[in-house]
Design a protein around this nucleic acid. Sequence first.
DNA 1: CAAGTAAACGGAACGCGCTCCGCTTAGGGG
DNA 2: CCCCTAAGCGGAGCGCGTTCCGTTTACTTG
Lengths: 207, 207
Amino acid sequence: MMEAVLELPQFDDGQTPHERADAARNRLRILEAATELVEAHGIEHVSMDDVARAACVGTGTLYRRFGDRAGLALALLDQHTREFQDALIAGPPPLGPGVPAAERLRAFGEGYLDLVERLVELLVVAEPPGRVVDGGPYPLYATHLALLLREAAPHVDSEFVAQALLAMLRPAQHLYARRGLGWSLERVRSGWCDLVDSLSDGPRAAR
Amino acid sequence: MMEAVLELPQFDDGQTPHERADAARNRLRILEAATELVEAHGIEHVSMDDVARAACVGTGTLYRRFGDRAGLALALLDQHTREFQDALIAGPPPLGPGVPAAERLRAFGEGYLDLVERLVELLVVAEPPGRVVDGGPYPLYATHLALLLREAAPHVDSEFVAQALLAMLRPAQHLYARRGLGWSLERVRSGWCDLVDSLSDGPRAAR
DNA sequence: CAAGTAAACGGAACGCGCTCCGCTTAGGGG
DNA sequence: CCCCTAAGCGGAGCGCGTTCCGTTTACTTG
């Protein structure tokens, strides 16, 4: 039931035992095969067995490497999201540092919405029902937003509001807004901006 | 793949063909058996086959009545949520009408949080990944919140903010806040209140 | 009350995610 | 260079949600 630490593609820091050569080779094979299959058919039409077969690997191997379907999806997502994360921390403004927090909040929403828009299906799979939890990039996003909010909206519980804002951007939620409600991306975009602006609007009297 | 209209426990309005006696009896049996099993073991330990067996019914019947596992969970939820819904529309203030919108917004959050707290597991099952959509009580909640927001926070897209607020109360999200993040119910509660208050705080200059 | 028919029934069967376990092999120590 | 062992491997197997389809049955019509 997936409780082992789950080997990550981490560097050998002397602490972790070192990843065996065949293991590394298989991880690559799997990632490669999965990427190709997903690009071709969309993740909802690719089963774990499909990936295993295409990678010439047993299903056991697949699960040992990635834990479960969500973990594999997360790994496929990794390259795409890493780029965005780097831009947040050290990229050019307004996404990166160098402008007022309120502006960066808007930029975060717009940038992330683009990401979600492109990768919804993968994101949905990477985030199964009872497990918005660990692993993914959400903790980073949450911290990032909380930090910005402390500056832009010091009058509220910034961690809570960070989570609330993030909740709206969750893939399932976005899917609902876009497909279920039929909202345009522009509406969501400007809704986000209005919302963060109205939270930022000058600190008012403490309650 | 569940596209038929899905028979609801609706009254015979002359338009719908009339539900056959055996069908009605089986619906009751299933609901009864499911309620009991879920109370006894928690929904995560009750399979569809378990329910079918306990209700002395084929699995086919189960699926014809309720569409899928989520539909069954929704039906089990129905009685609990109906009460809350009635209170929203016609109950005593501050949940029902009769006080300022800002106050009712707070009351909604607190009341709904209690509901979620009691019924998370069921709610999670009732809301599978790609389907925050139709059926459940969410549309009602969304409309309700949007209405209140139009009064309390006229300066933003009230439908959008309604969805955003609702997103934070979604079962999976709540589970994450409570268990993943370890937040107390009180923190979530007061986070909600702060948030809606800070949205309500006097209309400010239109942007 | 008999016959016709659409609806409902039940459970075998399917697909898929995930686990388990006996076998194989990489890689370090002697 | 060989041996030993822990890590890795593969795929049969399991549980469960869901579907399919041949059979049964409640209601209607005459």
